[in-house]
């Protein structure tokens, strides 16, 4: 009997489990990429004073589209590198988990504009930011059932903070004229960078192979 059979079996198990799970190794670069985009968008928004609802919405929706496209490209590249199919069952599951909360968040944040006949209310930016943070958190939490456990906790963090910020906003604890770019930059930039860095560092130590 080959004395390495147990090691080979373990390797086969790892490969199969990885194939069954989402591209864990792609998660760190995706988070870092999204974080850099988030920080850059916040900086552009603040420096160029893109404070009207149209400018704010345009900047951040554009950033979201870029981030999503980039994430797909990184995942695709990783799949090709590992000779795996890109549109695998786990990728499908994650996509299915992500889209309903993201779409609902988009719809709800734009609702005041629809109701206002195209005019955004004065506190639209803050309202849209909190809605996006909340529903993005819900999307991450849902996708977290098919991804590393940390993603679920990361989603819960967004949900908790958005609920707290909603409360503070309704209780007038935070001024409604605060630049929403700061909040967007913090949640979609800095937190993603931090999580990406954490994943990158821990993966290097404990490779999921």
């Amino acid at each position: 009997m080959n004395p390495n059979w147990a090691e080979e079996n373990l390797q086969a198990i790892r490969t199969l489990m990885e194939r069954s799970a989402v591209y864990r190794r792609a998660l760190a670069p995706i988070m870092l990429f999204a974080g850099i985009l988030g920080v850059a968008a916040a900086a552009i928004g603040l420096l160029c004073h893109l404070d009207s609802a149209r400018q704010f919405g345009g900047l951040w929706l554009g950033t979201a589209v870029l981030a999503a496209a980039g994430a797909l490209l990184i995942a695709r590249q990783q799949a090709f590198k590992d000779n795996e199919s890109f549109w695998s069952p786990p990728t499908r599951r994650v996509t299915q988990a992500l889209w309903p909360p993201l779409l609902a968040g988009m719809f709800l944040s734009l609702l005041p504009i629809f109701i206002g006949g195209g005019d955004a209310p004065s506190d639209f930016n803050l309202f849209a930011t909190l809605i996006w943070i909340l529903f993005y958190g819900c999307a991450l939490h849902a996708a977290g059932f098919f991804m590393p456990r940390g993603v679920k906790y990361f989603g819960l963090l967004f949900i908790s903070f958005s609920c707290g910020l909603f409360y503070m906003s309704f209780a007038n604890v935070i001024p409604t004229d605060i630049s929403a770019h700061w909040l967007m930059g913090l949640f979609f930039g800095v937190l993603h960078l931090a999580y990406g860095a954490y994943l990158y560092l821990t993966e290097k130590k404990n490779p999921v192979a």
Binding site: A12, I13, L16, M17, E18, R19, S20, A21, P89, P90, R93, F145, F146
Partner: peptide
């Protein structure tokens, strides 16, 4: 192995 890494398949 496949099922251990996914809730269901």
């Amino acid at each position: 192995s496949m099922l251990a890494a996914s809730p269901e398949l």
